[in-house]
Design a protein around this nucleic acid. Structure first.
Lengths: 216, 216
DNA sequence: CGCCCGCTGGCAGCAAGCTGCCACCTTTTG
DNA sequence: CAAAAGGTGGCAGCTTGCTGCCAGCGGGCG
């Protein structure tokens, strides 16, 4: 097929169907997006990451702060980062989603709106290189996820704040769980999640950080 | 012996010897002092407190802030308070130590200086009553030990600050102990002491409080 | 010198905290 | 409707943290 000819597909499902094979990056896999709404297809993201990992390609992901707007998204990002994915955050809006694969392919998505999103698959070398240059320039100026998170209190939901309060009162897990009507197991799950959000390796550290960020 | 006649003794040892029997309070045992330098005689304080406890007399102790000037004194105060002794702190200097027993006896000590301290044992009812009135007036105006401590960072020595630092870095006990060249046992002793000083029931709470007081 | 103290560290036993696994239930989705 | 996904809680096994007890060690002090 003529590499100079761009291909437009509609919707994520069709993208995976028609261009899924292109995602098998060997060297470079870079991605810029406002948030994590893409790859909502069940399992798609996991398979992708696992495949990249197997081929030792280090993925790079650039997001807007909105990608950690709520507790759950933030947790998801942390998990991905834990799998060796480089993640950075930049402030300027990334309305056009960009995916770069091995200096060969660029996939550019139109802004998310009503109906299926439009993806343009580009293989023209000149275009791909230009997009790459811009991507890496933006990447360099962006801040690492860990640094970004350290400078900004995570958005905790009501229950998390409540748990923080109980911890702050020095309650033992059992008492706190009872007070919340949770099982011990679930309570500890919540605490572990909060420790992760606070980037703390011990409860003492979490306490420090909670006060530091004005969360308790 | 004539109750109107005051008795003067020199040194703590002689006081215990000549007036020790007077300390068997049944109702009221109150004491005002700048710090805890009195009752330095080994075991004397413990025996006294134990005896009072057995007779259900609630002792009252009024100190100056200097009584918690260093980590060790503060810890001692906390321990005493844990034994049911009421402790308050007042800012105005209590250079003359005062002990009141059962509305019957007052023991007044001259300022601590070189040589043995001079104690005056008073049993004259009018004098004892006056001293009591003054004591309780001062007591009422003083602040409870717990409140006082909560509003003031404890004076930590170098090692304690170092431990705080290790905790802040999220180190496990074993790693921290190794780094300090301490045994696990001793390290945990130190941590427990710090938790006590910070009035914290859990490490999380200690973390909060440490940040709050600007200690880490 | 011997004795007493205070500090330390090992040990043991327990409490607290952490996590993987699985079963169950509800909700969502096809 | 069935299948899948997500949330919850029990359980088990482990790690980490906590503390009382005792033995050893070194420094004052009579």
């Amino acid at each position: 097929m003529d590499p100079q000819r761009n291909v437009v597909v509609r919707g994520e499902r069709e993208l995976v169907l028609r261009a899924g094979h292109l995602f098998h990056a060997r060297e470079e896999f870079a991605c810029a997006a406002a948030d994590q709404s893409t790859w909502a297809l069940p399992g798609a993201r996991e398979r992708l990451v696992a495949g990249l990992h197997a081929r030792r390609a280090r993925p790079f992901k650039l997001y807007n702060p909105g990608a950690l707007a709520d507790e759950e998204s933030e947790r998801r990002l942390i998990e991905i980062a834990g799998h060796g994915v480089q993640i950075r955050i930049c402030a300027t809006p990334l309305r056009q989603e960009t995916i770069l694969i091995d200096r060969k392919v660029a996939i550019l998505a139109g802004p998310a709106g009503d109906g299926p999103r439009e993806y343009t698959v580009v293989r023209a070398p000149g275009v791909v290189e230009s997009v790459r240059t811009l991507f890496w320039a933006t990447w360099d100026a962006a801040t690492d996820l860990a640094d970004f998170r350290r400078s900004r209190p995570p958005a905790l939901n009501g229950q998390s704040r409540e748990i923080l309060h109980l911890l702050a009162d020095g309650l033992k897990d059992e008492a706190a769980a009872r007070k919340l009507g949770l099982s011990l197991r679930t309570y500890r799950r919540r605490v572990a999640e909060i420790l992760a959000l606070l980037d703390a390796g011990s409860r003492f550290q979490a306490g420090l950080r909670a006060r530091e960020l004005g969360l308790a």
